[in-house]
Design a protein around this nucleic acid. Structure first.
Lengths: 347, 347
DNA sequence: CGTATGCTTGCATCCGGATGCAATGTAGAT
DNA sequence: ATCTACATTGCATCCGGATGCAAGCATACG
């Protein structure tokens, strides 16, 4: 019953502070602070002495206090939503790793249809993150975003928003969609189809627009143009079946690889068609699965490394701060031709 | 050239503080603080008045300052590493969403083989996160972990560490592996195989151990027991080919679904076997892909919702703080029987 | 009508570092 | 040897809220 000697739910002993350390060494707290600040005005011997003691006494500067006085958090807020599509985990993992390399941590903000987005984003402001990266395709109005990212560096990744003043980094979607169209043309396909992802997203609209335009230029027929409500395997599966049922389509361009994967399986396993002999299939993104032997999917590769590099550079140089003109950085991708459009049939 | 009127790299105007707000309204700063603190001692009218003005003037409490004085960050550090396996993104997304519901944000710490793990974890301590969740299978010694999580709530998810005093939440791996063994037995298989994931991980060892034990109890033959160096599609693919080459195996249990997916594709597309007629296949996790028609993979489902719920509860109640006895929470899973072990052949 | 009880509110101070400025010390110049 | 210039170090204060304590005030009760 007597637990008065230690807090029942306490956090153990609390860490040593700069002032305590300073007192133990017999220097001022400022000296300690400076010893831990690269480039600060301290003599090498003083710094050495302090760092030695610090190591010994297990002192580490409190990041929170530092944030408060420096008015800088070294934290980047990442707004995400579509973690079902492997492209995003891959992107986010790489991004957060690269940010860590330059001393920035990643605070994740999941926004989902179910939740109140404004509430979620409210936290973004309160935490005073140094920068915000938005990799979510979820509907966010330009106004909401401008509010949430007010006065701080902000980057949209893999999407653009027409009326927003935000900088964005995107794969060159229209280039990619055109490349797919060209590829279909070169293979001699005449009647092609497009299967959309989430309809209103910029990625979908750009890919769809460029594909249809290029198809027309090449004199091919757009035999089907399916609306989409999501970027999912199931959606691709069902769309492919619908197209197969109508018949007379040579090749399908799916708005991304997940859709294409669903489509491929539907065409082969359920519709009984041979890919690519009976019908060719292409996707977009080049997620890991696309190169699996089973899928071997022709797709337009989004260069994640370059996208991340561009994003990190923008954050590092602060070239996306309010007042700066918004800029859209288009990253070139690369057509990866695999067996879903050429070569021998699978299975 | 003349940009002297505003800071070139500045963050725009800075937000209003509690003191400023208080002065404008004519109350004390403490009143403002209390108005934003649920349960604090303020009259309803006072709170109302302050909140109204706050809304009007776009005041929001600075979370950093709050952390410093409350000695509480409302941030949970999540240590991750294996984002290639879809199971983890799914888990993390759900976890971070549930945490958000109770007002906690997620700070991601990616640890990778390439990077110095101790350096990464150093940040964990500096940020004073309220709790740490480790969902990484990467090698972390008990000592490293104890140091990184010293004095704070810490939970291991989907793994255990023998000599560590950390609480963990795991799917009941041995139950699952036994269930798979029973399932193989009931189907009449005699010669079965195990394909390992990352060898030293607790998940792999538990699944392997229980499977082999149960197999022996049932009088089945362990015809192959392949070591593994990673949980990847390619690894599963190659292992399956090795087993197919040896021949005379009725059923394979892969340590997880990604391995099983690779294995399935290899057996069907490359080895030319029918699944499940010639050989049955089972996995573990029940990732989204497992239920795709193409794979239709029999697997032991890890109940992500329950795992997350248990984890969140531990964090919420603080039942994993230093001093408390470490406990391993075993969550029961469920065998999902699909076409990779029963029914008609696919393709 | 005086006083006890409790609720509100403000004051002062703390959380742990960062930093401008002044004080001190040292070396180099004359 | 004297003075100037610069490198170090410490002091005091600030960052923006949280909170213990005491003063202020209203309601309740005798």
């Amino acid at each position: 019953m007597d637990q008065q000697d230690d807090k029942p739910s306490g956090q153990g002993r609390k860490p040593i502070t700069a002032r305590e350390l300073a007192q133990l060494i017999g220097v001022s707290q400022s000296a300690v602070s400076r010893a831990f600040t690269p480039g600060a005005s301290v003599s090498p011997k003083m710094r050495e002495r302090i760092l030695t003691f610090a190591r010994e006494l297990d002192y580490q500067p409190n990041a929170i206090a530092s944030m408060l006085s420096k008015r800088r958090t070294n934290i980047v807020g990442i707004v995400v939503s579509d973690m079902e599509n492997p492209f995003y985990p891959a992107l986010i993992e790489r991004l957060s790793r690269e940010l860590q390399k330059i001393g920035l941590q990643s605070l994740m903000f999941n926004v989902t249809k179910g939740s109140n987005i404004e509430d979620q984003l409210m936290a973004l402001r309160q935490y005073n993150v140094d920068a915000v990266v938005i990799v979510s395709a979820t509907i966010l109005s330009a106004a909401t975003l401008d509010w949430a990212t007010e006065n701080r560096t902000a980057v949209l990744v893999n999407r653009t928003i027409p009326d927003s003043k935000l900088t964005s980094v995107c794969c060159h979607n229209s280039e990619g969609a055109s490349a797919i169209a060209d590829h279909f043309y070169e293979l001699g396909h005449k009647r092609v189809a497009y299967v959309a992802g989430l309809a209103h997203t910029s990625t979908n609209m750009e890919r769809q627009g460029a594909f249809i335009t290029r198809i027309a230029e090449l004199g091919l027929t757009l035999a089907a143009n399916l609306d989409g409500t999501e970027y999912s395997y199931e959606s691709g599966y069902n769309s492919a079946l619908a197209i197969a049922a109508k018949g007379s389509v040579d090749a399908i361009f799916f708005a991304n690889d997940i859709l294409a994967a669903g489509g491929l399986d539907a065409l082969r396993d359920e519709a009984g068609l041979r890919v690519p002999e009976d019908i060719a299939v292409a996707g977009f993104d080049d997620i890991a699965m696309a190169s699996w032997p089973h899928y071997s999917l022709t797709t337009f590769r989004q260069p994640i490394n370059q996208i991340v590099a561009a994003t990190v550079k923008i954050i590092r140089t602060g070239s996306a701060q309010p007042g700066r003109p918004a800029k859209t950085h288009l990253i070139s991708g690369e057509l990866k031709v695999r067996k879903s459009t050429i070569g021998t049939a699978l299975t």
